[in-house]
């Protein structure tokens, strides 16, 4: 059997990749995808722990996460669509009316 640490390391790497992509990518859709990657890393962690602990609730949590991620995606894509329509661009550097 594969030890749990493998799963944890893999999910930590996925989560880290998501964070790095979130910070360095310039396309809004890619940034959005990196958030999904982070959420799926969390799912993997939940499932791995659920298996290791011999409890089912971790797998139930994954369903909650999936549902919430779907709701978030619906709202997020709508917002991105508004940006694309009003700015004709999906580059985050060009969405800069509000000075940071």
């Amino acid at each position: 059997m594969v030890p749990i640490s493998y799963y944890l390391v893999l999910s930590a790497i996925l989560f880290g990749l998501g964070v790095v992509a979130f910070i360095f990518k310039r396309n809004i859709i890619t940034i959005f995808m990196s958030i999904e990657l982070m959420l799926n890393a969390v799912n993997l962690t939940f499932v791995a722990f659920s298996r290791a602990l011999g409890k089912l609730d971790g797998q139930v949590f994954v369903f909650f996460v999936i549902v919430v991620a779907a709701a978030e995606a619906a709202v997020g894509l709508a917002i991105i669509l508004l940006i694309a329509r009003n700015q004709q661009s999906l580059n985050i550097e060009r969405v800069n009316l509000l000075k940071l």
Binding site: G76, I79, I80, Q87
Partner: peptide
């Protein structure tokens, strides 16, 4: 239809 509001929502969402 106000770009500023879109941008605010996008930043808040992301």
């Amino acid at each position: 239809n106000v770009p500023k509001s879109n941008e605010s929502a996008m930043k808040y969402f992301l």
